[in-house]
Amino acid sequence: MSEDDFIITPKEDKSVTITIRVDRALQEKFDHLSKISNRSRNELINLALEYAMKNAKFIKESNQKR
């Protein structure tokens, strides 16, 4: 290889398509945030999901009384 070679490697596709159902009110909030932030709804949902996964706490037992 020389420094003038145009190197092409296979593209890594890290994303997958999933379908979810959300309340209309939540969808409208994402649409509004998308409009005022100039980001796509998809991008905002991905950011929200990443935040949720980083900050999620799993509790094995419930402290609720029956």
Rank of each mutant, 00 (worst) to 15 (best):
D5G: 00
E12F: 14
N63L: 07
E3G: 03
V16M: 10
N42W: 01
D4C: 05
T9F: 11
K54D: 04
F58G: 10
S40A: 03
F6K: 07
N55V: 05
F30L: 13
H32D: 04
A48M: 14
S15Y: 04
R21L: 06
A52Q: 10
S15E: 02
L33E: 15
F30R: 07
M53F: 09
I59P: 00
I7T: 09
D5K: 11
T19E: 10
R21W: 08
K57W: 15
S2Y: 05
D13F: 00
F58I: 14
K57C: 06
S37G: 12
L33P: 09
S62E: 14
D23F: 12
M53L: 11
Q27C: 04
V16R: 08
T19Y: 01
A25M: 15
Q64T: 13
D31N: 12
I20K: 07
Q27Y: 14
D4Q: 13
T9D: 07
D13E: 06
A52L: 15
T9N: 07
S34I: 10
L47N: 05
L26C: 11
M1H: 12
I8W: 02
A56V: 05
I36E: 15
P10H: 06
K11F: 06
E12S: 13
L33T: 04
A48K: 03
I59M: 13
Q27W: 12
N46A: 10
R66Q: 08
N42P: 00
N55T: 01
K35N: 07
L49F: 13
R21T: 14
I18R: 07
K11V: 14
P10Y: 11
